[in-house]
Amino acid sequence: MSGTAAAAATAAIPSIPRDDDGPVFRAPWEAHAFAMALSLHERGVFTWPEWAASLADEIKRAQAAGDPDTGETYYLHWLATLEGLVARKGVASTETLHRYRDAWDHAADRTPHGKPIELKPEDFAG
């Protein structure tokens, strides 16, 4: 299952941080970003060469803007690539992404510490 898909991804994208067993992540959100790309690829939203080219563009852009290129920001570029491809492929517009981002922000704001944060329709109101 996912092991095979992940192996295909790491073979196609040599820059993915990894150890002997596969990709490594510095934080849970990085694993989420990685997994989303895998799912979208399996759905045929993009090919790995297409992904690699978009990611390379993203990294170039970030470096031109002063990204330190230490590897710590790798998944930030990965996330930006996801957002860009999702918008370009007509899956979700930039506006939609912003709307959901703001809704999650609202959800976090109204959720007391220690409680799970859940997105509710009212979070889209403001």
């Binding site: 996330l79 999702v86 899956v91 999650w104 510490h113």
Partner: peptide, 23 residues
């Protein structure tokens, strides 16, 4: 209240949308 970093907000936004759309 709870806090999510800017990055976490973006990841959650993306994941929610992709889930809702069935991707």
């Amino acid at each position: 209240h709870s806090e999510l970093s800017e990055t976490e907000l973006r990841v959650r936004a993306l994941e929610t949308i992709l889930t809702e759309k069935g991707y």
